[in-house]
Amino acid sequence: MIRIKAGVPRRAGRTRTDSRGPGRRGLPAWLRTSTRRPLRRAFSLGLPTAWGTAAVSYKLACPLAQQDGFGARAVTSAVFFAVGAGLILHVRHSLLRELRQAREVASAAQSVLLRPLPPRIDGLDVAAAQLSADRGATIGGDLYEVVATEHGVRVVMGDVRGHGLAGIGTAAAVLGSFREAVHDEARLDGVLRRLERALARHLRERARAEHPSVGPEPDNPVAEEFVTVLLLEIGRDGTVHAFNCGHPWPYLLSGTHVEPLARADPLPPLGPFPLPSELPPTHSGRLLPGETLVLHTDGAEDARDGRGRFFSLPEVLSEIVRDNPVAVPQAVLGSVFTALLHHTGGTPSDDVALLVLRHDHTGRRTSAARDGDTCGSAARARPATTDPQPTTHL
């Protein structure tokens, strides 16, 4: 591959390698890379070999090593200690370099899968974080995304079966489909059906890769896999519509009160069962200025301490809003994770993801506020969220 710097004219009849003169600097980039790797490999193997050769030569050829006196034994021990310490330091340096490269790759993968969310999206203050249960892993089977569209702010929170690195491929398939569907589909149920089709396609491809002998279209592609999904759509007037497929309902923080956003029965998770033909969304009232939504995966409420007691997320949220009713998303996020790690002793048994959305007073304005209604009157007009959602009977 030849790279030409913009704005620098090329002289006719003169190549880039000629202008740079002789030596390795005049070689193409791919050739410099290919010659650098064997040299690095030879250096990494040659240094320990040289140290070992020096130690053996000293023991066999040096007259001092053949003596039995205390001074001779001390010098011999010092030589071998220096050689051993050098080998250990060399191995440690190599392992640290590989660990640093692995962390860079993991960080790049995390930025692609779970993209960093901006602190503010269309009048909503946003904060999100994910904690992997696998030691040393930065990503796992939890997924979340917030996208501002012409249909409103659309949010997804999901949890792939299992935890850790095994669920990354499934999470990537669901997130990729969501990021496209939220802009293409005018209705929220259309987004959910797109997620279902993307998951089914991913499971078929995975089944073909794991069991190629079953043919091009397996009948039961990885039947035990499923994904819980929560879809929210927050309109310009603060109206919240939701679809819940086996996921925990988020908590609504209003002043010092903490309550679930809805109490309707969820649909089954995506994967094992098809979605019903009719998909009416759950109407969850309005997100008023100053109110906060806390979305979470089941790893938060399933976390246990050493005596087997579950982590009480509502109690922690109640303490947070009692101390600070403003409920800034970053502060809520940090307080919940601190309490969770303290409860589990720093070792959660499952992936945990939290997403906090707060309706800012200075951002989007609800229709009630534009009509001159106060937040108190709008709060009294909040509709009930206990209407049952249709479920699939098997």
Rank of each mutant, 00 (worst) to 15 (best):
S177D: 07
A108R: 09
P22G: 05
C375M: 09
R201V: 05
H343R: 00
G46L: 12
G299N: 03
E291G: 01
V336N: 04
D184G: 02
E225Y: 10
S213P: 00
D18K: 08
A6I: 12
I320F: 13
T138A: 11
L279M: 08
T386G: 10
T392C: 08
R14N: 01
R161K: 13
G169Q: 11
L39Q: 07
D360T: 14
A242G: 03
V326P: 00
G271P: 02
R358Q: 12
F243T: 01
A128N: 02
Y144S: 04
A54V: 12
E315A: 15
L355K: 00
S132Y: 05
A102H: 09
L275W: 09
T386W: 08
R382A: 13
L333H: 11
P116L: 03
V191W: 02
E224Y: 09
L357D: 05
G299P: 11
G21C: 06
L313H: 04
A223M: 04
L143R: 07
A129D: 15
I121Q: 02
A223D: 05
F243P: 00
E225M: 14
H211L: 11
P276R: 05
V227C: 12
V214T: 14
R16G: 12
Q130H: 08
R204Q: 14
E291D: 15
S19R: 15
A327G: 01
V326R: 06
F226R: 06
D159C: 03
P269E: 08
R40M: 13
T76D: 11
R304A: 05
M1E: 14
T256W: 00
A148T: 06
A129T: 10
Y144P: 07
A74E: 13
G164Q: 02
S284I: 00
H342A: 15
P329F: 01
W249T: 10
R20Y: 04
R194Q: 07
G376N: 07
T17M: 04
E210S: 14
R307D: 13
A369Q: 14
S312I: 04
R204Y: 09
L231H: 05
G158R: 08
E145M: 02
P22Y: 07
P276N: 07
L333A: 03
P276G: 14
G285F: 02
S94W: 07
G26I: 05
H393P: 06
P218R: 13
A29L: 14
E315D: 15
T170W: 02
P221V: 01
L96W: 12
A55L: 14
P383C: 08
E205M: 15
L27N: 07
V79Q: 06
H202G: 05
R179E: 03
F310G: 00
G363M: 06
P314D: 06
M157T: 03
G140V: 01
A369Y: 03
E217Y: 09
G190N: 02
A55I: 08
V153W: 03
V258Y: 12
G299M: 01
T49L: 15
A128V: 00
F178M: 03
R309M: 05
R286Y: 14
T228M: 08
R206F: 07
